[in-house]
Design a protein around this nucleic acid. Structure first.
Length: 424
DNA sequence: TCTGGGGTCCTAGGACCC
DNA sequence: TCTGGGGTCCTAGGACCC
């Protein structure tokens, strides 16, 4: 059985999710802002046609958007995460095995039919996604992940191919590779693209064909792997079971800059509570906790500090992590500074299923058991009755520092009171 | 006034081991 | 005058991804 690797992704995913739950913004120019309403991170095709650039800070382009009648939304990750899960379930049911690569894309293993033509299968999957989720998807086929990525890029950019492109089952593969600029090759970022251009490597085909010793010298083993992938030699395995995370981080920019220790502590406490919940959901413990704070990196006199505590006993217990993080916060806080962002990072994670006991532990096992029970109970209550039903006093009530989300849509797929109503 | 968040992998260099 | 070879682990920083 010949197998192909597919890369399947949602087109303009965040914008498509908004359009899927709200017909009034369908087929209209729409942009989605990053957290804190910072910059543009997604555009509907109609907004793209108006020449709205990706990544542009919102405050710089706000007037232009108003003038052009572009609809603006804050990002709504509750909605996108839920729509993503539905899409991944659909892919899982229809493929031999999938690797969820990001919120809006997955690699998949597909059996190629005896006549070699994957287009009927792909057309059916696109129709299913459109009908059941209202999400348009693109599908690219290759012999490796790298080729599947290129094929997906071609599926999106060549209207004639209607969202499906098979790089293997095609006559003039080379001419297609020649049409892809080096910047659009997966794994080539700004820095590497600059080097490639200087060397006269301007397309995916040229990258595939240069002597590998030159590539090795500049890009190291990563470059060699990339080249092999372009040649159709799969070096990056399909990870159908997700591997456990090595780090977990919760960080946010503030809605307005923070100068007082009290407010900073509220914010850090909130992030620690969130990060500890994440650890418990992932069934992991952390062996280290770091806190970082920083001022505006675009302003002169940029200030940034980080501090870490290594924990004797790995834990995911909020009652242990909170005081540790708050002590670190007091240590790195500096008065008369305007902080714009802070965060908490957990490193050296390990499975909660095989907990190493400490030789020198000073706590009682009984006490730890009771605290684990307490954490479980809090998580269950918050899952049943909504986030923050049980909170920690040090997180504060008003949270004036919290991020801006002035134009957020409703939780149409995850909150019963906000389900859209269709009038006949 | 206002510029996102959360990850992975690789490399180099230092400390240390036998 | 002469000063090994082979390895692990850790950290910091860079590059990249969506």
């Amino acid at each position: 059985m010949v197998q192909a690797i597919a890369l399947i992704d949602g087109n303009n995913f965040y914008a498509a999710c908004e359009q899927s739950i709200d017909p009034s913004v369908a087929k209209r120019p729409l942009v989605i802002l990053s957290n804190n309403d910072g910059c543009i991170i997604a555009r509907s095709p109609e907004a793209r046609e108006l020449g709205i650039p990706m990544g542009q800070p919102y405050f710089r382009i706000r007037n232009k958007l108003e003038r052009l009648g572009v609809i603006v939304r804050s990002s709504n990750y509750a909605l996108y995460g839920d729509m993503s899960q539905r899409l991944m379930n659909l892919l899982d049911e229809n493929c031999e095995g999938i690797e969820i690569y990001s919120i809006d894309e997955a690699f998949a293993r597909i059996n190629r039919p005896s006549n070699g033509d994957l287009h009927p299968w792909a057309r059916r999957l696109r129709a299913l996604s459109n009908q059941s989720l209202g999400l348009p998807i693109s599908i690219g086929f290759g012999a490796s992940k790298g080729q599947a990525k290129l094929a997906n890029h071609l599926a999106k950019t060549r209207a004639f191919h209607a969202g499906i492109f098979d790089l293997i089952n095609i006559q003039d593969q080379d001419s297609y590779l020649e049409s892809i600029p080096i910047e659009n090759v997966w794994g080539i970022g700004q820095k590497s693209a600059h080097w490639c251009r200087l060397k006269g490597i301007n397309t995916a085909k040229q990258l595939r064909d240069i002597p590998s010793n030159q590539l090795k010298a500049q890009l190291g083993i990563v470059g060699i792997r990339l080249q092999q992938e372009l040649l159709g030699q799969a070096c990056l395995p399909l990870a159908t079971t997700p591997s456990p995370k090595q780090t977990t981080c919760v960080s946010r920019s503030f809605g307005h800059s923070v100068t007082s220790l009290e407010e900073l502590i509220e914010a850090i406490a909130t992030y620690v509570v969130h990060a500890s919940e994440k650890l418990r959901r992932q069934r992991q413990l952390t062996q280290s906790i770091s806190v970082f704070i920083r001022t505006n990196p675009f302003a002169p006199s940029f200030y940034s500090q980080e501090a870490t505590t290594r924990l004797g006993v790995p834990t995911n217990d909020t009652t242990v992590l909170l005081p540790t993080a708050l002590a670190l916060t007091r240590k790195i806080f500096s008065a008369h500074k305007q902080f714009t962002k802070a965060g908490v990072i957990m490193r050296h994670l390990q499975s909660a299923d095989y907990q190493q006991q400490s030789l020198l532990a000073t706590y009682s096992q009984e006490g730890q058991y009771r605290r684990d029970q307490l954490m479980r109970t809090i998580d269950q209550i918050n899952a049943s009755y909504g986030k923050g039903t049980i909170s920690w006093a040090c997180c504060g009530l008003k949270q004036h520092w919290n991020m801006r989300r002035e134009k957020i849509s409703c939780a149409a797929t995850t909150r019963i009171m906000e389900i859209p109503i269709v009038k006949a």
